[in-house]
């Protein structure tokens, strides 16, 4: 068995609905959609509005600020990458403009993470895209 470092599992570029989001991360832009008809915020990215039948969705860019809606400190994982990161924090983040995203809270002691903590985007740099992680402000 080799001890070759295992990388974080990355999204696929050929997934049609989310490709624009991931292309945006390369520019360090957190892109989300808003319906041109009913103004509903759409996230994750899709082809049609979930609030009406409109398919005219406008891409917008978030300022990357938000709050922790809920979280867990993962202390057991058998995944070849994530087991090397234990303990780590997974969280649902409520972005100020409306999107809720599943991500990791980094740059702090896991024990200090609380619901309601204000966070900001922190990009993890990869070759063809960047991963949106969050750090307490």
């Amino acid at each position: 068995m080799s001890d070759k470092p295992v990388a974080r599992p990355l999204p696929k570029f050929d997934e049609a609905d989310t490709a624009e989001f991931w292309a945006g991360t390369k520019e360090k832009e957190f892109r989300y959609q808003q319906c041109d008809n009913c103004q509903k915020i759409i996230f994750y990215p899709r082809r049609t509005c979930t609030g009406c039948t409109n398919s005219q969705l406008i891409w917008k860019v978030s300022n990357g600020l938000g709050k922790i809606y809920t979280f867990s400190i993962v202390r057991l994982s058998y995944h070849p990458f994530f087991k090397q990161q234990l303990p780590y924090v997974v969280a649902w983040i409520d972005i100020d403009e409306g999107p809720r995203i599943l991500s990791n809270v980094v740059g702090c002691d896991a024990e200090d993470v609380k619901i309601g903590t204000e966070v900001k985007l922190e990009w993890e740099i990869h070759e063809n895209l960047n991963i949106p992680l969050f750090e307490p402000i």
């Binding site: 991931w22 867990s72 993962v74 057991l76 599943l102 990791n104």
Partner: peptide, 18 residues
Amino acid sequence: GMHPADNMDRFSGMTLIA
């Protein structure tokens, strides 16, 4: 899998228990 939601979630390392 290849559902758009999967493509947004998989980087986070969320386990089923988490």
